[in-house]
Design a protein around this nucleic acid. Structure first.
Lengths: 183, 183
DNA sequence: CCGGGCATGTAAGGTGTTACATGATTTC
DNA sequence: GAAATCATGTAACACCTTACATGCCCGG
């Protein structure tokens, strides 16, 4: 059900196509919620059936036709009802890399270090890009009224990645310490 | 497929029942992978069929019978094959609270602060419990050979929760600042 | 006497992933 | 000449969640 509210939240700010919503997911929502485009399109169809959104199809000459979705009053009501009155579920993480880390005692120390170095680079790039995005959208820490949510969650994402990197450096040090002892 | 490897990883350390594996998930794995007991039982059945585990049933007088699973050589081979040669998937987070935070501009500031205060308490308790667990299992930062993975991932969990708390305090301050301006 | 722990599971439904399909235009 | 972008979706399958079921023991 939560994907639905994520989409309604975005549509409450601006009408958009499924494609645009997918892009927005990749830019900002991905830091706390993941979804594929196939899932987004499916959910948009269901919401339209239930009267939470309304769409208009726009013909284009050079590109495929597009379908612009807008939230309805009923949709916004249900969004607020969920936000204010539904229980907050516990967060769920699925981290493939950490799962491997939890079994590092089964593999050679140098391979373990390798995994962490690769992951460190990914997170470094992610941090750089998110920082850039944040600077572009909130110059000097200023934000518009309807950007409060984004402003708060992007800061979360930045801190999360920084904390990841610092943990990663610590873990690499621990493994190198262990590697030295093995020689 | 990853749940399977999480279970094999635990079984490679100690044979265990589905129930015990569920407990272990709640204690340590939950910091980077979530699974319900129903999923765990089903996966154990499938793995047995494929010869990755072997089980023996133990009769008990006061409690229900239990089924103790052990990893097979084939199971351990496949675990290593996955660890070393399969691509590492991107991490996936689903955080209901952050999803709401991303829409805080739709609700009154005091309600938003309330959400954060509640969540802060949850994370505080989680941090306390995890700290306790960590101190019990790794006194003075010492760990046994086959505990390396747990040692590294528990440190991750501690840092994650600390970073969460510090973000939460920052966000509450931002909201209070905003609340003042609105008066 | 009620709730929680012990211990296992089935069944139904909801959510997520992967592969495929279309087809023009722009960029390397 | 190949790949990416725009834009939408279907179908099949894999995975996850929720509700239900059993039944005894122990502590408050």
């Amino acid at each position: 059900m939560a994907l639905r509210y994520a989409l309604l939240g975005l549509l409450a700010k601006n009408e958009a196509t499924g494609y645009e919503l997918t892009q927005q997911f990749k830019e900002t929502v991905i830091h706390f919620w993941t979804a594929h485009h196939t899932q987004i399109y499916r959910e948009l169809l269901k919401m339209e059936e239930e009267g939470l959104t309304q769409s208009k199809t726009v013909q284009q000459n050079d590109y495929p036709d597009k379908k612009i979705y807008a939230i309805t009053d009923k949709g916004f009501e249900q969004l607020l009802e969920w936000m204010l009155n539904k229980p907050v579920n516990a967060p769920k993480l699925k981290d493939d890399l950490l799962l491997r880390v939890s079994m590092f005692h089964f593999i050679p120390t140098d391979k373990a270090i390798n995994f962490l170095e690769t992951s460190k680079n990914h997170h470094k790039m992610g941090l750089e890009m998110t920082k850039q995005w944040s600077d572009d959208h909130f110059p000097n820490g200023t934000y518009k009224e309807n950007e409060l949510g984004e402003y708060l969650t992007i800061e979360f994402a930045l801190r999360y990645m920084e904390s990841w990197l610092s943990w990663c450096n610590w873990a690499i040090k621990e493994l190198k310490k262990k590697g030295e002892l093995e020689k």
